[in-house]
Design a protein around this nucleic acid. Structure first.
Length: 349
DNA sequence: CACTCGTGGTA
DNA sequence: TTACCAAGAGT
C-alpha cells in the first residue's frame, strides 16, 4: 500500500497541472472551484472561475448579489442549481457563520449544493482534514487498481469505495493526496484507452494484470432521453420584445427565455403558421420568419426548437407574467444556451 | 433507490 | 453520427 501511495504522489508531483485554484488556500475560492468542476471539465470551467472570483472576491460579495446576476455569470455552464445553491450557501455563510467559512466537515456538508465529494474536497484541501474525496476519477482509479466490480453509483459500491479510500488516505496532507488521486485519474488512468504501458502502477494494478481495464469501473445502464418540441416567439413591439422567467421544477429553473409554446409532437410548417399559443390567443399573429429547427441535447432530454419571429401592430398584449424588455438589453438576462444559439443563428443577437 | 438536473469535447 | 462522460447533488 505504501508503494501505491508513493507512486501516486510521485506521479502527481511530476505531472500536476498549473490550475488557478491551486494557487490559493482560501476555502471560499476552493469552494467555488469545486462547485464549478462538478460534472464539468477543467477546460470548460477555468474562465468561469476567473470571472466569478473577479466579480465576487469574497463570500459576502456573493451573498449580497442578486440571484439573476449569479445565474448570468453561470450562463452556459449548465446544471444551474449549482449557481442557485452556491448563492444560498453564501448567504448562510455570511449570516450564520458571520462570513467565515465553516471549518468542520459536518458544517461544510450541510451547506446547500455541497455533498459528500465537495465536503471532503474542501475539508481536506482547505483545512487539512483527512476525508477522502471520491469523484469519478477516483472511482475509476480504485476500481481498476483494486479490482472493485460494484458500480460506484450503487449503494453497495459507494460503501466499498469509501471503505478502501478511508483506509489508504494519509493523515498528513490529505488534500495533496486527494488531488493526486483525482489528477491521476484525469490524466493517466483515463476512461478510454489509458496509456497503461507508461503507468507507474502497472506492475501491481488488478485491471492491468487481469485484462479488465476496459471493463472497470462497472457502469450501470443510463436512463433514456425524451423528446420535446419548443416553439419560441421573438415578438417585436417597436424597440421592445418579451421575455419570461422559467419557474417550477423543469429544466433551466429561474433562467429567462422568449415566450414559449411547447407541443407534444413536432409541427408541420402549416401547423406552425396556424399555432395560436394560449399566451397570445387574443392577439393577431403576423409571422415574419421561422428559424430552422435546432436540436439541443441535454442529459435526459432532446429538444427540437424553432424561433418564430413576429411583428405586431402595436396593440399586442401578453399577460403580465411576461416582461417587456428593450431588445438591446436581452443580453443582460441569463438564458439557456439553446436560446442563445437561436438568437445567434437568426441574427437577433 | 431511481431519476433529474446542461453543456461540450473526444473518438 | 452516436456514445461516452466530466473534480456530483437534490429529491
Amino acid at each position: 500500500m505504501t508503494d501505491f501511495l508513493q507512486a501516486i504522489h510521485k506521479w502527481y508531483n511530476q505531472n500536476l497541472r498549473d490550475l488557478p485554484w491551486r494557487e490559493t488556500s482560501d476555502p471560499y475560492k476552493i469552494w467555488i472551484s469545486e462547485i464549478i468542476l462538478q460534472q464539468t471539465r477543467v477546460a470548460q470551467g477555468i474562465s468561469y472561475y476567473h470571472r466569478f472570483i473577479e466579480r465576487f472576491p469574497t463570500v459576502t460579495d456573493l451573498a449580497e448579489a442578486e440571484e439573476d446576476e449569479v445565474l448570468k455569470l453561470w450562463q452556459g455552464l449548465g446544471y444551474y442549481s449549482r449557481a442557485r445553491n452556491l448563492h444560498a450557501a453564501a448567504q448562510t455563510i455570511s449570516g450564520k457563520y458571520g462570513g467565515e467559512f465553516p471549518k468542520s466537515y459536518s458544517e461544510i456538508r450541510e451547506l446547500k449544493g455541497i455533498g459528500p465529494y465537495t465536503a471532503a474536497a474542501i475539508a481536506s484541501i482547505a483545512f487539512g482534514l483527512p476525508y477522502p474525496a471520491l469523484d469519478g476519477n477516483v472511482y475509476r482509479v480504485l476500481a481498476r487498481y483494486f479490482g472493485i466490480f460494484a458500480p460506484p453509483n450503487s449503494g453497495e459500491g459507494k460503501k466499498k469505495f469509501l471503505k478502501i479510500a478511508e483506509e489508504i488516505i494519509p493523515a498528513e496532507n490529505p488534500g495533496f493526496h486527494n488531488q493526486a488521486m483525482m489528477e491521476f485519474g484525469a490524466l493517466q488512468c483515463i476512461p478510454l484507452s489509458p496509456d497503461c504501458p507508461n503507468c507507474p502502477l502497472i506492475a501491481s494494478c488488478y485491471a492491468a494484470g487481469h485484462q479488465k481495464v476496459t471493463q472497470l469501473p462497472v457502469k450501470t445502464p443510463k436512463t433514456s432521453q425524451r423528446n420535446r418540441y419548443f416553439y419560441y416567439y421573438y415578438i417585436e413591439t417597436g424597440k421592445d420584445t418579451w421575455l419570461e422567467k422559467r419557474t417550477g421544477k423543469d429544466i433551466w429553473e429561474n433562467l429567462y427565455q422568449f415566450p414559449l409554446a411547447e407541443t407534444k409532437q413536432e409541427l408541420s410548417d402549416e401547423e406552425i403558421a396556424g399555432l395560436q399559443p394560449s399566451f397570445m390567443k387574443n392577439d393577431t399573429i403576423n409571422i415574419k420568419a421561422v428559424s430552422a429547427q435546432k436540436k439541443h441535447i441535454l442529459s435526459h432530454q432532446i429538444i427540437f426548437a424553432r424561433l418564430i419571429h413576429l411583428e405586431t401592430d402595436g396593440n399586442f398584449k401578453l399577460n403580465n407574467h411576461f416582461i417587456k424588455v428593450p431588445q438591446k438589453d436581452i443580453h443582460t438576462f441569463a438564458v439557456p444556451r439553446l436560446v442563445e444559439k437561436l438568437m445567434e443563428e437568426t441574427g437577433i443577437f
